[in-house]
């Protein structure tokens, strides 16, 4: 009994660190993009101020129960991934609630938030949110395909579905990372990461000059605050998932920060110089090269 409370407290500490790192990382990325545009960009503390402002708005309008639950489901998805994801390898405190089959569970949670968002967004009643979320679900389905194939490939490779064991198998130096031992799976997953993070060219879900601004069009005040909190959280945990699966995990917080930053930076790097695909273009893109690489990666390990 005592153990579980202590573990919960450590998990909350991990959540606190991850959340703040997520906000800081978001601000850093926006600053990097601004520097490419020859601007200074937002201050580093801007995301915190935005959150305070959003949570402290004096009024908010509801469009029904599902409208309330949409952001909660979304946050549930983000928290779900976080809870079952070992953050620091070998640390008793920051391995959260990871267990033998957590990889499957995390893949499920990735879709869970999106579905919750779909229910909430369509209850907002704005046609733009509906168009946005339809695009989002359509694209996300195809993003999941190469990612799942890559996960199956490394599950076959390491003969396990536990992230901790996958990380353990990659210890001992650079040459043991999945990046080196299974480059095809890594390639498929890194391509689908572009769709997962929804930077350009796959940012059609929130495309401001087509469907301003997609699913959260009607969300405001604390609802939007929850969505943005979840966004910060999700960026870190998704990056941490990729770090664990393909880049040898992290043994301490500094390594964690550097690796998640680089994983996220990959999608920003591509996004800065790319226009946006249309929905059918992005869907077919994922179903061509990334899918082929994914299938190849699975075939090699059968």
């Amino acid at each position: 009994m005592n153990d579980i409370i202590v573990k919960l407290l450590w998990t909350l500490l991990g959540l606190f660190i991850v959340l703040n790192w997520g906000l800081l990382m978001g601000a850093t990325m926006r600053k990097i993009v601004a520097r490419v545009a020859h601007r200074y960009g937002i201050p580093f503390y801007q995301p915190w101020l935005d959150l305070i402002k959003l949570y402290s708005n004096r009024s908010s309008i509801s469009h029904g129960v599902m409208f309330y639950l949409g952001p909660v489901f979304r946050l549930g998805g983000g928290l779900g991934i976080f809870l079952f994801l070992p953050l620091i390898y070998g640390s008793e405190h920051f391995s959260n609630f990871s267990w033998a089959g957590d990889l499957i569970l995390i893949l499920y949670f990735q879709f869970f938030g999106m579905l919750g968002m779909a229910l909430g967004a369509s209850d907002g009643g704005h046609p733009n949110s509906v168009i946005g979320i339809t695009r989002g679900l359509g694209q996300f389905t195809t993003v999941e395909v190469p990612l799942t194939l890559a996960v199956i490939s490394i599950a076959l490779q390491y003969n396990t579905l536990s992230i901790s064991e996958i990380v353990a198998a990659q210890q001992g130096g650079f040459q043991n990372w999945t990046l080196v031992t299974n480059p095809l799976a890594t390639a498929a997953a890194m391509l689908s990461l572009l769709g997962l993070f929804r930077e350009a060219p796959f940012n059609l879900v929130k495309a401001p000059n087509e469907v301003p601004i997609g699913p959260p069009t009607e969300y405001h005040s604390a609802f939007l605050g929850i969505l943005r909190t979840n966004g910060a959280l999700l960026h870190v945990v998704e990056a941490a998932l990729f770090m664990n699966l393909f880049f040898g995990g992290a043994t301490h917080w500094v390594e964690f920060i550097v690796k998640t930053f680089l994983v996220y930076f990959w999608s920003v790097f591509v996004g800065v110089v790319s226009p946006r695909f249309r929905i059918e273009q992005s869907v077919t893109w994922f179903l061509k090269i990334p899918l082929a690489i994914g299938i190849l990666a699975v075939i090699l390990y059968i």
Binding site: A34, R39, Y40, I42, P43
Partner: peptide
């Protein structure tokens, strides 16, 4: 919103 004036600096 562009390099010369960059209002993003001021939130």
């Amino acid at each position: 919103l562009t390099p010369r004036f960059d209002a993003f600096r001021y939130g």
